[in-house]
Amino acid sequence: MSREDTMKHLMKRAMAAAFAVGFAATAAQADTIRIALAETPSDELAAFFVALERAKANGLEYEWTAFSDEELAIQAVLSGQMDIGFGTPYAAMQRSKAPIRIVFQLSKLKFFPVTSQKYEKLEDLDGEPIMLHSRGGGTDSIANVIEEKYGIKFGERSYVPGSANRIVALIAGQTDATIVDLSNKNKLMKQEGDKFNVLPMFEVEASDEALFANLDWIQNNEEAVNTFVAALVSTWQDMSEDPTIISRETNPDGPIGQLPPEILGNLDTFYTDAVEGGLYDPNGGGEKAAMADLEWYSGAGQLEGDPSELNIEDFWYLEPLKAATQ
């Protein structure tokens, strides 16, 4: 069975499961929202967990499960196993016809091609293997757009989740080219900048990570979703004013508080660099992000059709964000 056939089969199963649980979901407001993370808790998720703590203080109960990659998180929401997921499921939304909608942009696609000194510009990567985060994810879409913009074709693509893990692979000589986030790019260049190159890269405003859910579930749990989105907006806005708010509000008994001291001690630097680098929209993206996403993911081959003719409301549900930012 080809990968495309396998994905179609999974989508059909997910839709059937989603239909089966749909009636139960409409009965009442959810007592606890179930969140599908696309990776294990890390410094990159510290702001998200601060927002969760704020939402909990306002009466929202939650539980989370960390999946090994974005595709599994998407499938968990499609099947009804989870309520809210991490990712940018544009291809799944369009192909499955499931009423999945994005409600908040968590971060933008601020990633950087980093290579050994064999390469000096993106065109040098024509035919060369590259290591990316996940199949169909943000770095995969960046690679697709690089190919289109520069008229090149990467060689074999391998997938290793986590920018930090791909940096380790680069240092160990397991790859000569990868795409990593702002924080890990900065760490690499500070520690071993004389051994690696950061290739010139075009600006991207599209979403890297977003929160999405089934529209029926969103509308049947309006109060919980509004509380959650309001907490996210307040956290992102406070962070844009003072990035150290994240370390100060991190729960020492929560999943971020249990991370190694060297990571916790670097939270202020991480979020200061991220805010200065434009990684976060303090207003959660909204229509501006949705338009950028349609253009980007169409160019990346994950959406079919002219982006100017696609309807934002088929992919985003903006009401909770509008309520939180008024």
Rank of each mutant, 00 (worst) to 15 (best):
R3E: 14
D5E: 15
D5M: 15
H9Y: 15
M11Q: 09
Q29V: 14
A30Y: 08
R34W: 12
R34P: 01
P41S: 07
S42V: 01
A47I: 00
V50T: 07
R54K: 14
N58P: 02
G59A: 12
G59M: 11
L60H: 12
W64Y: 15
D69P: 00
E70D: 01
L78R: 09
Q81S: 12
I84C: 08
F86L: 01
S96E: 11
Q105V: 04
K110M: 13
F111L: 03
T115S: 11
S116Y: 10
L122E: 00
E123C: 03
S134Y: 04
I142E: 04
A143E: 02
E147N: 06
F154N: 05
R157L: 09
G162K: 06
N165G: 11
L170F: 13
I171P: 04
Q174I: 01
D181I: 06
N186E: 11
K190M: 08
V204C: 08
V204P: 00
A206V: 12
E222W: 10
F228R: 02
V233E: 15
V233R: 13
M239H: 07
E249G: 07
D253S: 10
P255M: 04
V275N: 04
E276R: 13
G285S: 05
M291E: 15
Y297K: 01
G305M: 07
